[in-house]
Design a protein around this nucleic acid. Sequence first.
RNA 1: GCCCGGAUGGUGGAAUUGGUAGACACGUUGGACUUAAAAUCCAAUGGCCGUAAGGCCGUGGGGGUUCAAGUCCCCCUCCGGGUACCA
Length: 885
Amino acid sequence: MDYRFREIEKRWQKYWEENKTFKTGDDLTNPKKYYILDMFPYPSGSGLHVGHPEGYTATDIVSRYKRMNGFNVLHPMGWDAFGLPAEQYAIQTGTHPAVTTNKNCDTFRRQIKELGLGYDWDREVNTTDPSYFRWTQWIFIRLYNTWFDKGLGKGRDIAELPVPQGISDKGEKAIREYKDSKRLAYYDDAQVWWCSNCKIVCANEEVLTDGSHEKCGNPVVKKNLKQWMLRIPEYAERLLDGLESVDWPGGVKEMQRNWIGKSTGAEVDFPVEGSNTRIKVFTTRPDTLFGATYMVLAPEHPLTPILTKPGEKKNVEQYVVEAAKKSDLDRTDLARDKTGVFTGSYAINPVNNKKIPVWVADYVLTGYGTGAIMAVPAHDRRDFEFAGKFGLPVEAIMDPDTRDTDLREKVLKGEECWTEDGKYINSANSKTGLDINSLSKEEGIRVTITWLREKGLGNAMVNYKLRDWLFSRQRYWGEPFPVIHWEDGEITLLDESELPLELPHLEEYHPGANGESPLANSTEWLYVTGPDGRKGRRETNTMPQWAGSCWYYLRYIDPKNSESIFDSDLERYWMPVDLYIGGAEHAVLHLLYSRFWHKVLYDLGIVSHDEPYQKLFNQGMILAFAYETATGAKVAADMVEERGGSFFHKKTGEELKQIVAKMSKSLKNVVNPDDVTKRYGADSLRLYEMFMGPLEATKPWDEKGVKGVFNFLNRTYRFFSDELNLMDGDEDNETLKVLHQTIKKVTIDIENLRFNTAVSSMMIFTNLALKKGKVTRKSAEMFILTLSPFAPHLAEEIWHLYGNTVSLANHPWPQYEEKYLIEKTIEYPVSFNGKMRFTIDLPAEIEPAEAEKRVLADPRAEKWISDKQIRKIVVVPGRIINIVL
RNA sequence: GCCCGGAUGGUGGAAUUGGUAGACACGUUGGACUUAAAAUCCAAUGGCCGUAAGGCCGUGGGGGUUCAAGUCCCCCUCCGGGUACCA
């Protein structure tokens, strides 16, 4: 019978939809629950590309497998639908982003259904739906009303914040300011890239390396704008700790640790000569204080203008302007030339009372540490380069621990930099009373910190690279903040009962004046009057796209609840997410932000677990073929023709090179799953996505490869759908063995997310069945069940042909039996000096000594031994025999 | 720059996690079927030498550990992801 995949797939998709086959069970007494989650997509206008179904097919297979193993499965899908493209489209066409968004969601939903992916569509969420973002706003209010209690190491309600006597004495305003300084969400100036031509804030990626705006080519500068910020660094330690308990790829954990960037050290105050001002620095190496020969302030440091002497004013001001044009990446790039200017001021090094110059340089960043450093050029590479360039003194305070005498001499003379360990020298001062000479590094650090503390000059300190999270965007298409700015400067949040605060309908989506979002143009929405007659203005910023994706996994649990964010019993049952699959590009930001919110909700007693995602897996990216000329110019795929295995430009006839690149509109190499489904069917697409290679690998899409799995499905369908190929009675021994091997392999591979080898083992079984010509009905049924999570339409069809009247989706998973897998003999490879020469069949249970004897008795061994002395024979039971000559 | 990954036939990949390198596919070549094509089926297919038996080489490059290295260690090259307003 022909494999009529179009008809078959349509039939079963209809069946699943009508029977709600994949509806989540509501039996909370079933202890076997499995919450399996895909990173939900941004529904772009171009629809799905073949990269999306990769992860979705993987989770679908696991879902179906778990369901067949008696699990209560939660497997939902939704849309991360706020975002820039819909807004830009609105600016151009005036179409409301909600219209565009809904259309795109419809396309995505249709495409996903046509792939036979078994989601519970009754739980679909959409971040742009007011009934969803109502709760995003609700969480924001929670963040605003939470402070982090360092003593307890957890977030608490702001009402429980103890206000020091000195502050409460000063009255309401002081108390309010104190509380605001502790809230997890706060409103303050933050630096953003500003294009004065377009009058908008730019994303880093929109700023080109020469500091110009990608869209208009005009230079961008950094500008301070009032922004909402979240104090994620308060949770740094918790975010580090939590990584210990989750089953995530090591690389992702490592990236998160590095991103948090914990470093321990000390903060040290440097008095400024002739002033009461002190410069506070953070250093991981307080033990090198004796080597500090100058100081550096970040250009944006508040003391920069104050410490600049009149004679240096022009230089410094110009330098600060220039620095504002550079990105952090440019500024800290080790390979780049260091720049800086002298302020004219001097600080006093507290350990030896030496006068040291204060410079301004952009290799020091405001956002990290205190925005000022003490420079120890003898023992820090960046400081050494800077000192060399500007002729600043280099004083070695560490005798290098090296055998390279030449290098050691240079270091001691200040001609080389030494960042490794050594013995302290020149590290004592009788007047200040600090002496760390001859101590080890740890002791040096400890003694110096004790000394600093005693003198009131500093203290031990932990610093994190992790910065406050800039949580607002100057956009229309995002969640509005439930915030009112009153004319007297007070900020209040809406009451929960007033949520959701919806977006106003606009005629015009152009940005507002002075970098405000388009919401600033919606005067009716914007201005409010309080019950007391006080006038106020709503927040015009909206939340970033991260906001909706930070907690969507929680809403899936109870998506239609209008009373609360979700039901607690349901949350306790379903959380944590058992398996989360998505792209590695989200390794840090999304996953870190999401964990942060979850921990706050946990501290407030809203969720029951400290970590949201128990197991994480990153699927690799799918690339596509692209073409380039000999000079490396890219050629759009529709301009290329293939002739005899080579590729040529259709117009110029030039021979082109086939390369592998990201799918992109400009290269015209985007593969649409619809085209593949039309030609080969959804089961083929699914199977190919899994067969291409390991789920985590980056791999190129090759249409020819689809043919391979299509052939397999064709053969499988033709063989197993034909009654003539089925027999009653006992199964052939070889068939039985391979069948059970296949079930075992597929079972273990699904558990380990190794789908590519599962598919190949099923191919092996079908190939054998075809060779044998007949299999028993029982074998056929077991095989079809094994195949069903991968090619569900085809499997349901054959299952139905075998006389079953209900879907196999809830049929128990086939069990393999070890007794069919036992081998009586093992084919041992025999190698001489590690080179395999021949194989020998030996009983599986053979003793090593007996194996040795049998090998040496084999005539083929003679040739390799000849007259040589046998030095050793290694027999690894079940594996190999190696004879060392 | 910094952090995290990766590199195996003409191509995608497999390799019991230190034990026969190339499973399973694609492609190619030859054959069968056909008036022909498609589809399907059968066979061969890492490179080099050889009629063959067989031999030598071979997992990005260089070194090392081991009876044994694609797998472990050190150094290098190239490619990909992230780099906080793309999400």
